[in-house]
Design a protein around this nucleic acid. Structure first.
Lengths: 198, 198
DNA sequence: GTCTATAATAAGATAGAC
DNA sequence: GTCTATCTTATTATAGAC
């Protein structure tokens, strides 16, 4: 067990980053080997079921870590509108750092494989549910009903995922900053309205 | 010029549908040939630059048609909130018809190729701009400022594109119906607020 | 304009040495 | 656990007959 994690970990890391930039079919195993610096023999040692398993683990593990970071970032929030705004701007910064070549998004993999790999579809589905659930938790803590919190959390998750697509296409973080601004505005109204009604 | 359009048109049509389901690298030319029923010789006759050109034309032409349909559907609207709601539910129905295997979305292609093909990136960028512009037009007609209209139109476009990803992953139109409901609610507030302020 | 055959390359996966 | 060589198959693209 000593340092056996390094090769595996490097594979997971490299796989996730390449998936973000090129999607599932655009990313070859040889490229993953090269990028990670891990030996090719290790790939099938750690992931006997090949590409599908490697990708599933990469998204499952990195996605869970991402969902946890979102949860922690939101759980102490005083103003949900401001918290969501910050989260979106933070994503815009990450995108900016990569010159809009990647973001914490595996939407391409989701769309490419949802019809062909039940294993990947389920892994990605769980990950999206974790994102939505993290956001929903914050909204519940601020007095929204269960049903409304799911709706808003779904809207936030979807709009972020979609905005990344627009940013990548435009090579600009403008769309993300637009939806950040707009969601802050709309959430403020929703909070005021919700507080008045209860 | 007689019926030379049929082979080309079938190629465009088949390409677009396969791209929706599998993305760029997941869709092979052989599959396009087979699905379209068009002869293989025709592919390089109509699209001498191969796959990249075929895909660019497919998304360019089908995307433009889609943007025009959106514009027409929205331009006579009396209530923007209701119009957006209808548009989203209409997308949900289309998705449902295909059992959530495809929708009018090429987000996968956008993410896969934005770093590697400038030609495809520009084609897709223009198409997204056409979507946003169609929605923005309706909002301007209902008294929103230029800046606010862009923001809201971007949010609507992004959230639809992102919701399709969630629906495909969940094999359910629920996420789309959630964001439709929520956007209708939020837009109503925004309209009331905007009308009061002017 | 269309068809068939095929070239050239790269993919995922495996076997066996070490 | 790792490395190298290789098998099989699929990919994009082209050449030349019709």
């Amino acid at each position: 067990m000593k340092n056996t994690m390094t090769a595996r970990e490097r594979l997971i890391q490299a796989t996730f980053e390449l998936l973000e930039r090129q999607g599932y079919h655009g990313t070859g195993l040889n490229q993953i080997i090269k990028e990670s610096g891990a030996p090719k023999g290790s790939l099938y040692y750690y992931f006997p079921n090949g590409k599908e398993e490697l990708v599933s683990r990469a998204i499952g593990e990195q996605g869970k870590a991402l969902a946890d970071r979102i949860r922690r970032a939101l759980e102490g929030a005083q103003d949900p509108a401001e918290a969501v705004y910050s989260m979106m701007l933070h994503l815009a910064e990450k995108l900016e750092q990569s010159k809009c070549t990647k973001a914490g998004s595996f939407a391409a993999v989701a769309l490419e494989t949802s019809n062909t790999s039940e294993m990947l579809r389920e892994t990605i589905n769980k990950t999206y549910d974790a994102f939505i659930s993290a956001i929903q938790g914050m909204l519940l803590a601020h007095g929204f009903s269960e049903a409304r919190a799911v709706q808003i959390a779904t809207l936030i998750t979807a709009s972020m995922e979609g905005a990344v697509v627009l940013c990548r296409t435009k090579k600009s973080t403008e769309p993300l900053r637009h939806i950040a601004q707009e969601m802050k505005h709309l959430l403020r109204s929703a909070i005021a309205e919700n507080d008045a009604g209860s």
